[in-house]
């Protein structure tokens, strides 16, 4: 990807030069004395084209405006984000490296299951605007009407329905927690494993499996091909309001949040260079609330909601703790 970033860098430097020039002339932009003086790298631990990649590219122009320097998007995919996250932490703590990542579930997952060489606390969340939740769904032409029917059928015979799910995922944990809550032995289920949300969604929409437990957001383009049965969220989800909440099915179960995506830096940066960190935080905050950014991202179904570092870190660490508690479920 070296070539790619160079080209990108050239392009952005050209565009960014103008922005930088403009920003010098504009007073009132909050900046630490000597930061930033050169382009800033945004590490995306996924390949081009994924949610985080799109989020970073769509958001970059607005963040550039606030920071006064161009952003260079660097895709570092591989090993379930472990390579990209490790790479980001290896960079100097000078504020020239920002992460745009799916903090949950990937950081805790790589820590719990892949012995990644970092801890959850090594990362500091600036803002996690995008939240995704596990959705239990069935194909639109399926005879299954609602989630209660699924549970009733499985209670009678745990192998009566096939279940599509990604192993070692929040979705898997949610599925098993539900089964345990209603007294179904999860080991007796006919579980079909998929190595990614996409394949699991296709299998659900194509009725390869009777019920799929997958992150709901990816289902949006396929909305007409599926029937949502239950979404693992505490309150109605804005981007999928017609999906019934899991609580509506009368099942009381603990749940893990599917994805928490957004902007992060290394925790060391905040501790060692608080001024630089504050500049980044302010820039992300302002850009997130820039009406133009909000409008542009909304068109692409990307989130900009500003929760702030406190709420974001709490949400991230709470969910990570929950995942650690259910680590045996994740191990499948």
């Amino acid at each position: 990807m070296k070539q790619f970033t160079r080209r990108e860098a050239l392009k952005l430097t050209a565009a960014g030069g103008l922005v930088a020039g403009g920003s010098l002339a504009m007073p009132g932009i909050v900046r630490a004395a000597s930061y930033p003086t050169r382009p800033i790298n945004v590490i995306v631990p996924f390949a081009t084209g994924g949610y985080n990649d799109r989020l970073s590219r769509a958001f970059a122009p607005y963040l550039e405006k606030e920071l006064g320097q161009p952003l260079v998007i660097i895709n570092k995919p591989g090993a379930g984000t472990q390579l990209g996250h490790t790479y980001a932490l290896q960079q100097p703590n000078d504020g020239y490296t920002i992460l745009c990542t799916s903090a949950s579930p990937y950081i805790p997952l790589t820590v719990l299951l892949q012995q990644a060489p970092y801890k959850n606390e090594d990362f500091w969340m600036i803002n996690l605007p995008s939240r995704d939740y596990t959705l239990a769904a069935t194909s639109s032409d399926s005879s299954i009407k609602d989630f209660k029917q699924v549970i009733d059928m499985l209670k009678k015979d745990p192998s009566s329905l096939s279940i599509g799910v990604q192993p070692a995922s929040a979705d898997y944990a949610n599925m098993v927690l539900t089964m345990q809550a209603v007294g179904i032995d999860p080991t007796k289920l006919r579980v079909v494993t998929y190595d990614g949300g996409g394949p699991a969604r296709n299998a659900t929409a194509g009725a390869q499996v009777d019920v799929g437990f997958v992150g709901g957001e990816g289902f949006i383009p396929l909305k007409t091909k599926i029937k949502p049965l239950a979404i693992y969220a505490a309150e109605t989800v804005s981007w999928f309001p017609e999906a019934p909440l899991i609580s509506a099915s009368g099942i009381k179960t603990d749940m893990v949040e599917g994805s928490q995506r957004g902007w992060a830096v290394s925790a060391k940066l905040k501790a060692e260079a608080p001024d630089v960190y504050k500049t980044i935080e302010n820039a992300v905050s302002k850009a997130s609330q820039d009406p133009k950014a909000v409008e542009a991202l909304k068109l692409q179904d990307l989130a900009t909601t500003w929760y702030g570092p406190e709420a974001s870190n709490k949400a991230f660490l709470d969910n990570a703790a929950k995942m650690a508690r259910y680590v045996d479920l994740l191990k499948s």
Binding site: G49, R54, I220, K223, T224, K225, L299, Q300
Partner: peptide, 14 residues
């Protein structure tokens, strides 16, 4: 697909 989405178009049945 990413290029479509970056131009605010989501391919699919609709």
């Amino acid at each position: 697909l990413a290029a479509f989405m970056m131009h605010n178009i989501v391919p699919g049945p609709s």
